[in-house]
């Protein structure tokens, strides 16, 4: 699926929830599904600055597709990472670089994250886009 097709699907999944606790339940279960990364990847090189909880991001390129590996100490952050990986993993470097991640706004994630957390999310997206730039 394309980046936009996956985003649209996530938007459909998330707009069903009226109560924000339900959205957090969704993020938390997404967080639980995020595959833990090898502890050797949890190093300072992969650490993303600007996040309230520690976030590690690693990527590799295979057959012109980018594979992302990410983890965090915090479960809700892992949930957000899980959504980002669902969208960005296994796409081409060009698609990743040019992605317009409108799901953040349309799911209400943007306005329901604290500015600090929203900045952290921005830092993760930027790192993903710049990885093979």
């Amino acid at each position: 699926m394309t980046i936009n097709e996956i985003q649209d699907r996530i938007i459909r999944e998330m707009i069903e929830f009226e109560d924000w606790m339900d959205k957090y339940d969704y993020l938390i279960s997404a967080g639980r599904q995020l595959k833990p990364i090898d502890s050797s990847l949890k190093n300072d090189d992969n650490l993303i600055g600007g996040c309230q909880s520690k976030v590690w991001l690693e990527a590799e390129r295979k057959n012109n597709k980018v594979r992302f590996f990410a983890d965090s100490e915090a479960l809700i952050t892992k949930g957000i990472l899980s959504l980002l990986l669902r969208i960005m993993d296994n796409q081409t470097p060009d698609e990743i670089k040019n992605a317009d991640l409108y799901f953040i706004e349309e799911t209400g994630l943007q306005s329901h994250l604290s500015p600090v957390r929203a900045n952290g999310l921005g830092a993760i997206v930027k790192q993903m886009k710049n990885y093979f730039d």
């Binding site: 924000w20 606790m21 957090y24 938390i28 909880s53 100490e73 915090a74 479960l75 809700i76 952050t77």
Partner: peptide, 21 residues
Amino acid sequence: GVHHHDLGTVLDKLGIAVRTG
């Protein structure tokens, strides 16, 4: 087993303001 930031976030959604970090 719970990250302080997650706990603070859930409490926030319940209307309870605490500090975390």
